[in-house]
Computed example of a mutant assay.
Amino acid sequence: MSRAAIRYAKAILQKANQNNTEAVVFGDMQSVYKTIEGSRELQTVLQSPVIKANDKKEALLKIFSGQSEATHILINVLVDNKRAPLLRAVAKSYIDIYNDHQGVKAATVITAVPLTSELEANVMAKVKELTGSDKVTLKNEVDPTIIGGFILKVGDIQYNASISNQLGNLKREFSKSI
């Protein structure tokens, strides 16, 4: 995350705290992040130097018309300061900062196939054991190149139990012995 995105996220969180709307804005930021992340066209519009600032602002305010006043203020400020491309990063930073303040730990598990509910429960138990937190959000990413097993990321910790990692270790051991 860029420093600017973090500063904007902290500012919007401070404003939301003053109005007791931090949870509402959290929902907004999740929506904003998912919308921008899922739309190449919107990402292109935000990045484009050719599209006028007023057109960007108008488009964003229409797309996010159902969001809170704080989110509309953020959009206005970002566009006015020629920082519209930061909107996705600001939303992500807000989500991370909010979760951190709430004691929510975010974990990512990368598997070769989508998680079953049974495996998800086992992963959640492991994350709770590692973090000591009952508040955990789990994101599953599918990457067939890991062949099998999983890679678990929680904060700075990464636990790699993938087949591709084990095969790589075996290859390195054979290379050393030859």
Results as ranks from 00 to 15, higher is better:
residue 66 G to M: 07
residue 88 R to E: 14
residue 58 E to R: 12
residue 60 L to E: 03
residue 21 T to S: 15
residue 10 K to L: 06
residue 37 E to K: 14
residue 11 A to N: 03
residue 59 A to L: 08
residue 56 K to E: 15
residue 10 K to W: 04
residue 99 N to M: 04
residue 62 K to T: 07
residue 54 N to M: 13
residue 82 K to C: 03
residue 63 I to G: 08
residue 67 Q to H: 15
residue 30 Q to Y: 00
residue 65 S to Y: 14
residue 59 A to H: 03
residue 79 V to F: 06
residue 96 D to A: 10
residue 71 T to L: 08
residue 50 V to Y: 11
residue 57 K to V: 02
residue 70 A to K: 07
residue 60 L to W: 04
residue 63 I to K: 00
residue 45 V to Q: 12
residue 25 V to T: 05
residue 18 Q to I: 00
residue 93 S to E: 14
residue 62 K to M: 01
residue 29 M to L: 07
residue 94 Y to W: 00
residue 97 I to L: 13
residue 19 N to C: 02
residue 48 S to N: 08
residue 77 V to I: 10
residue 11 A to L: 02
residue 49 P to N: 10
residue 26 F to V: 06
residue 51 I to A: 07
residue 98 Y to P: 02
residue 27 G to Y: 08
residue 4 A to M: 04
residue 70 A to S: 07
residue 50 V to G: 09
residue 87 L to Q: 04
residue 46 L to Y: 01
residue 32 V to K: 02
residue 23 A to L: 07
residue 1 M to A: 08
residue 47 Q to T: 13
residue 55 D to Y: 12
residue 26 F to S: 05
residue 16 A to R: 07
residue 39 S to V: 06
residue 94 Y to N: 03
residue 98 Y to G: 03
residue 64 F to G: 06
residue 18 Q to K: 04
residue 23 A to D: 14
residue 95 I to D: 13
residue 91 A to V: 02
residue 66 G to S: 09
residue 12 I to E: 09
residue 65 S to F: 14
residue 93 S to Y: 10
residue 64 F to W: 11
residue 99 N to Y: 09
residue 39 S to P: 07
residue 60 L to P: 04
residue 32 V to L: 08
residue 96 D to M: 05
residue 43 Q to P: 02
residue 87 L to V: 05
residue 27 G to I: 01
residue 60 L to M: 00
residue 43 Q to I: 06
residue 78 L to D: 07
residue 42 L to S: 05
residue 55 D to L: 11
residue 54 N to W: 13
residue 15 K to V: 11
residue 44 T to D: 15
residue 39 S to M: 01
residue 43 Q to A: 09
